[in-house]
């Protein structure tokens, strides 16, 4: 379904509007709110438990702003 089988999520900071859906609904609690702001003043989420990601893709699907994508996990 997603480009590669075992992936790593990535936040596209300039597109995020800070709705918090990724933080709230990730089944593995991978995200948390950070203190970093993007250029539009949005408080960004950050990936704090990336290792626990199961690549379910929910955050990618639920992000209303195309601000989460998956890239190949360089460690695999």
């Amino acid at each position: 379904m997603f480009p590669l089988p075992k992936n790593k999520v990535k936040i596209i900071k300039s597109l995020c509007k800070g709705c918090g859906y990724c933080i709230e609904f990730c089944p593995k609690n991978v995200f948390e709110r950070s203190t970093e702001l993007n250029e539009k003043g949005v408080t960004l989420p950050e990936i704090v438990r990336g290792d626990e990601c199961i690549s379910c893709g929910l955050c990618v699907m639920l992000c209303p702003d195309f601000a989460i994508t998956m890239e190949e996990n360089p460690d695999e």
Binding site: K17, C19, P64, D65
Partner: peptide, 8 residues
């Protein structure tokens, strides 16, 4: 707007 369902 932030969180608007239309993006989804």
């Amino acid at each position: 707007c932030a969180g608007c369902g239309l993006g989804i």
